[in-house]
Structure formats: C-alpha cells, structure tokens
Design a protein around this nucleic acid. Sequence first.
DNA 1: ACTGGCACTCTTGGAACCGGAGTGCCAGAC
DNA 2: GTCTGGCACTCCGGTTCCAAGAGTGCCAGT
Lengths: 340, 340
Amino acid sequence: MSLDDRKLDVLRAIVEDYVSTQEPVGSKALVERHHLGVSPATVRNDMAVLEEEGYIRQPHTSAGRVPTNAGYRLFVDRLSRVKPLSPAERRAIERFLIGAVDLDDVVHRTVRLLAQLTRHVAVVQYPSLSRSAVRHLELVPLSTTRLMLVMIADTGRVEQRLVELPGPVPADAVTELRREVNEKLAGEKLADTPPLVQALVDESSPDRRGMMACLASVLLETLVERTEERVALAGTANLTRGSLLDFQGMLRPVLEALEEEVILLKLIGEVEPSITRVRIGDENEIDNLRSTSVVSTGYGPGATIVGGLGVLGPTRMDYPGTIATVRAVARYVGDLLAQN
Amino acid sequence: MSLDDRKLDVLRAIVEDYVSTQEPVGSKALVERHHLGVSPATVRNDMAVLEEEGYIRQPHTSAGRVPTNAGYRLFVDRLSRVKPLSPAERRAIERFLIGAVDLDDVVHRTVRLLAQLTRHVAVVQYPSLSRSAVRHLELVPLSTTRLMLVMIADTGRVEQRLVELPGPVPADAVTELRREVNEKLAGEKLADTPPLVQALVDESSPDRRGMMACLASVLLETLVERTEERVALAGTANLTRGSLLDFQGMLRPVLEALEEEVILLKLIGEVEPSITRVRIGDENEIDNLRSTSVVSTGYGPGATIVGGLGVLGPTRMDYPGTIATVRAVARYVGDLLAQN
DNA sequence: ACTGGCACTCTTGGAACCGGAGTGCCAGAC
DNA sequence: GTCTGGCACTCCGGTTCCAAGAGTGCCAGT
C-alpha cells in the first residue's frame, strides 16, 4: 500500500476542509489551516498520489482537490473518529422526545428531530410489522355483516381493516370469535401466523367455516401479505441547502425518489443489529440517489431491532457528526419504546 | 369600466400563452397565435391600457407582457370557462381509485392521483374528526392497569390512544365500561361529546370515579382537544418543474411551509360546501407561499363535506384545467366514501 | 525526502459590444 | 374615432476579450 500516514492525514484534511467550506481545497490553504509540518509542495506531491489512487480529483485542471466517493469511503472507514454529541444536542433530543403520546407521535417527533439536528432529509420507519408480535386482536361489529378488525402489535402499532362477512352474525358469536382468534394468535410473531390462521379455519365447525374463511383472508392480509411498512419523512427543504448549484439538476430526481415509500424502505429498512450503514454516492442502489449519501441504522427496545431510521444528504456531508447523531437518536428512541 | 371585450380577449390570450410558453408574450406573437383580427399596434394599445389597470406588467422595458396576480384573478373569475376532463383523465381517476382497501389507502391514492394529473403538489386532508360522528368506541385491556382506547368514526377514521388507569381493573368491569361509553357517545358528533363525557364522570359511582375520570380525559383528548387532523402530501418533485429560475429562491420557503401540517390544513381545510377556492399569489395568508397559487375544494359523501383537498403550484398555472381536475377528483372521492 | 521557484493552465469576473425582440408614439388611412 | 404601418428607442442576452487569481506540475537544489 502506497499510502503512508501523512498522505492519509492529507486526505483527512481535504475531506474536512471540503465539507466545511464546500469548495475545492488547494495545497496552500491546507498547510495553513492544518499544522501538517510540511510545505505546500510536499502536500502537492501527496495529492498527486492520492489522485492517482482515486481518492481525490480536480474539478478542472488547476483548481483545488475534491474527495471522490472512494475518498469519502476511506475517510469514513479509517480516518474519522466518532464525534461525541454536544450536551446541547443531547438536551435537544431529550426535550424533543418526552411528551410523545403515542407511536405516531414518537415517529413524527423523531423524524423532525433528526432532520433538524443533521440538517438533512430524515427518514424513520415505523416499527416493522414483520418484526412485531400480536398483542391483541379486536373484532368490532359495525353491522350484522360487517366487522372492523383491529390488530394491536407489541410494538405499539395498530392496524385496522374492514371485514365483510358472507352472512349476518349475532353479537355473541363475535365475542366467541374474538376469544378464539386471540387464544390462537396473541403473542405470536406476525411472521409465524399464517399456519395458525389456516388452523383456525380448519378447526372451525362447518357452519362457521364460511365466516371464518372470510375473516382469515383479511387476517392474513393484515398480518403478512400487505406487509404494511410505513415511513415518515421530514426535512426535504434541507435539500436546497448548500451549494444549490450542484443540486440544480439533481434535486428533481431525488425528490421523486423520496416520494416512493418502497424506495425509502429500501434505504433504511435493511438494517442489521447495531450496525450503522453508510452508503456513499453510487453505493446506493437507487439510481436517482447516486448523488447522495445515506446514513442509516436500526432502532428498537434494548438490543432487538424493530425498524430503521436514517438521513439522506449530499455526499459531502459531515460523516462523523451525522453518524453520531443518527446513532444517538436511534438509541433514545429505542429507550423510549422500551418504556412501553 | 374601461375594458371592452377585445381588451379582455387580449388578456385571456396573454394568460393562456404565458401559461403554456412560460415566457413574456409580445404583441406580434399574440396576433399570430390567436386570430384577434387586429394588428399588433392595436394590441399594443390595448396592452398599455391593461398595464395601466394593473392586469399585466413588463418584466423589463421592452420585453413582452406577463399577467399580474390581478390579471390571473380576472382571468379566473370572468374569462375562463371550465375545461371538461378528457375521457382519458376520467378513466385514470377511476382506475386509480378502485381497489382502495381502507381509508388510508383511499387518501394515499387520491393524493398521488391528484399530483399526477395536475403535475402540481397535491394535498388531501383525511376526513376531519370534527366533522365526524362516533361510530364505536372500543376498550382493549392490555394489562390490568392499561387500556387501549380505539375510536372508530363514521367517516372511516380510526384513532387509538393508550389509557393508563390509576389502579387495576378486572376484565368484566372493562366490558361494562365499554357498554356504558358506547351507549352514551355512539352516534354523536365529536364536537358534541365533551358535555356527554363529563356526564359520564358525574354519573359514575364513587368507587369508579377515578378510573372514569382517567378515561374521560383521554377520551376528550382523542375526540376534540388534539383535534387530530391529518393530511397527505404528494408531488413535491413537481415544484422543480417549469422555469426553475423563478423558483430558485422560492423553492426553499415553499418546501419548508409544506412540512408544516398546520399550514397544509390552513390551505385546504377551510372549505365551504361546493365552492372551489382559488387563492392566487399573495392572496395566500402564508408568507412563504405568496409566490404560489392554491386551488382547493371540499369533498365528502353526497352533499356533506368531511374534508378538503387541493393542489399548490406556481401562479402561472393552467387554472381552468386544474380547477376541473380538482373538482372531478373531489367528486370521485366523495362517491367512493358514500359507498361505505 | 523535502522545499522554493517558476512557468503554465484554467476559472472567474468585468467591460465592451452587438443583435433581436418588443415597445411607444406619431402620422396617415378608413 | 379607431385602427394601422412605420420608425426610433430601450433593454436583455449572448459573445468576446482581457486581466487577475488560484492552483498545479515539475525541476533543480538543499
């Protein structure tokens, strides 16, 4: 490997300067702002090597250097230490999250907080149903042939669906039905329910078979099929921050991508325990987002993970700071969920 | 009134041309594209008058004319006839809306449809709780000291809140409680419930008073206080459409405003029956949106209104087309709601 | 292995310039 | 009186040119 320590120092300095000034950084400015202990000429030689290796590049001949995606990657992997949050930030997080009254509220507050702290676009996934267990199923008769099915998950999520029954059903039959489905399904992971639902149908007496089948199909839809993942988004206005110029052409595709829930889920939904993922530029699978970076992590009570959250911003973002903030927010939200 | 018919024709032509070309329109181009039957010089004289009256203006001396907000206003009020929707559009609406499985789905589909058809930012308010009546209240015991309160409104909305009870409550007491609150509140307009809830507390036996008070406070919060109006938003990417230049500086404040639910509600929530409101430029109360126009209307089953929907776009929008689309979508959604 | 010096490149901003589009006004025609 | 053709004028937008500044690559010297 041809990169000695000083060259790495130079790369780090370039990334830091470029992120804070948004302008290509030259050798002279570099030695002035960082005490590298060598002359600009030496730095220039190092820069030439770094460029050779693909970590930096020049926008035009004879302009300063700008980190490439590979440069950011190296910086994130080896050159940055995690920046501890300021007390002010910690306080902001706490203040923001206390007083949340329900899950919806928690998610909304979190996503706004994240957008505000990082000054980027924030995305928070609602606790994933596929990672939840059934806490309770409620059947509310709306008319004799119509039920409202309400599922309450242990993560706090509540889903409801309408059930059209094939024929009129008396109230006490509904009570019995409720007892039955809860006995069978309560406490089970949603992912494990399909065979149990099928069993419910199979075990039911012939005269109730039709009704049960009807209910079962809606149950399955609610519990698994329409794996109803939801996300909240905030801070899109932050996309106009920073050198608008670079973004001019890029803004539209990014906004378009952000309108697709599927895409948002892909961004932050694929989380592994206690790993903060950083995807830089074209490491992103979504074409429209190749000009951005995404920092995402999982959250949940204790060590388990029930959903993902993260931010999206320009590749030239303050990675150490952003990573620290995303992690901290995720931890706080996890604690909050653990309390319920 | 100094405006004869031909001057109005000229104004109409200017608005139409400007909307379609996005460029200041001159006298020569005008007579070429519209058969006004007079010479450019005559048109110029008319333009001078129109400018005098404040309906059009010149970006710079010796450029074409551009409509002012007053010009658009006059155009909308007196010069435009409603444009009937194309069969293709009707089909698009129908295709989009069938297959919606629940209220959430209806709202989401609607807002995306609206954004797609108008190519502007679309906003749809969920059926307003303040315009709804209670259909059913469900109490689900989560533990001996915790209930989940689920309110189902006649508009299809479902709200849930956690109730922390002061002490343990047996299951059959919950059943009794459920019967009681439903008897009292079911069928009532949400706005009328506060005295009834109070009555519930007053009438309850002393030993249940504490529990009831607890439940009552959450009930009130759910039903009225936190008048939980929700909105859905789509099509923000459309803001980058059209001459980006004009928008450059304006984009950010608009995006910021669109992040505030309160603002969105103000935009489309204040609806009167069967009126389509058009707010042009600084007719908007929100400062950040003075550079945009908003077309909004109410929707609901039959003649009643349960919520608002609309779009936001540049002041130079195709008003007749937009108004027609907004109205049509509102009507379709209303019909859809009526079916449930 | 580092440094100072130097020639070179390329961007950026400003000044000057020109063509084109569009206007306002006026005198004449219907 | 109303409309029209003609004409001089204004101003924007693009282009060119130039000078300054920033930054580089390379080389010879320590």
